[in-house]
Design a protein around this nucleic acid. Structure first.
Lengths: 124, 124
DNA sequence: ATAGTTGTTATATATTATATATTACAACTA
DNA sequence: TAGTTGTAATATATAATATATAACAACTAT
């Protein structure tokens, strides 16, 4: 799992880290129980501050994607992450995107094909 | 078209304004050529600063959703908005969401049903 | 025992993003 | 003439993002 940061993106660094680890879990590149690099190690690897990585890890822990241990470090959670209000969250984030798509002539079918392709791409 | 702002949301006010107008255009609630309230009027209506509304309008104008005239005010563009790189933009924004969905047990079919429902909801 | 690691906490600083406040301008309209 | 329009400029305040530095308790390895 190589984490790649785009420093001049509009997405915050801690969000980029968070997203890439979630993608890694979804794809199976990161298996349950697998150890993650320590916050210091990862921050050194990608050239950012310790706290930037720690913030991403803390967010992942708060949603039970990973577990963090003061002595053994961070690792992918052995349990399934909380469902939480995922459908509500998706709806809230998808609504402006669907509106954009409609305005710019992207049909429902094209939109669904894109989503389907992303599912396939991640699950590869 | 009533614009409703949630002041304690994590979404910036200008983004909320931008999104709701895009949704209005997508749904047909805002027709081509229709006049929008002036930046001063809208800012007074929703209780925010002039520049906050102006920033949202400027973003909408930059993507040719609306046209702004120094003398006649702002109105919905008569032309179709630029396609731009909408598919690429959607893919970039959808990828982390699909990964989240996969991790939290949302199937491809459930995801597509949600998108389809949002299409129907907006086009109502 | 010593050295090095872990997440965690705390404090400080810098930059950018967001939002407001105020003033002013040229070009209109009523 | 009075009032409106988008636009521009300046200033201020707060929050978000990122870095820097230091320290702590709890381990692990030598």
């Amino acid at each position: 799992m190589v984490i790649k940061i785009v420093f001049d993106a509009d997405t915050p660094i801690y969000t980029q880290i968070y997203n890439q680890i979630v993608i890694g879990i979804a794809s199976g590149a990161l298996q349950k129980g697998e150890e993650l690099p320590s916050v210091r190690r990862l921050s050194a690897d990608i050239g950012v501050n310790l706290h930037t990585v720690n913030k991403a890890y803390a967010m992942l822990r708060d949603e039970s994607f990973i577990v963090m241990d003061r002595r053994s470090g961070a690792s992918i959670s052995a349990k399934d992450p909380e469902m939480g209000n995922i459908m509500q969250q998706l709806e809230q984030e998808l609504t402006p995107m669907v509106a954009q798509a409609i305005c710019k002539g992207v049909t429902r079918e094209q939109f669904n094909e894109l989503c389907s392709r992303l599912y396939s791409s991640i699950l590869s």
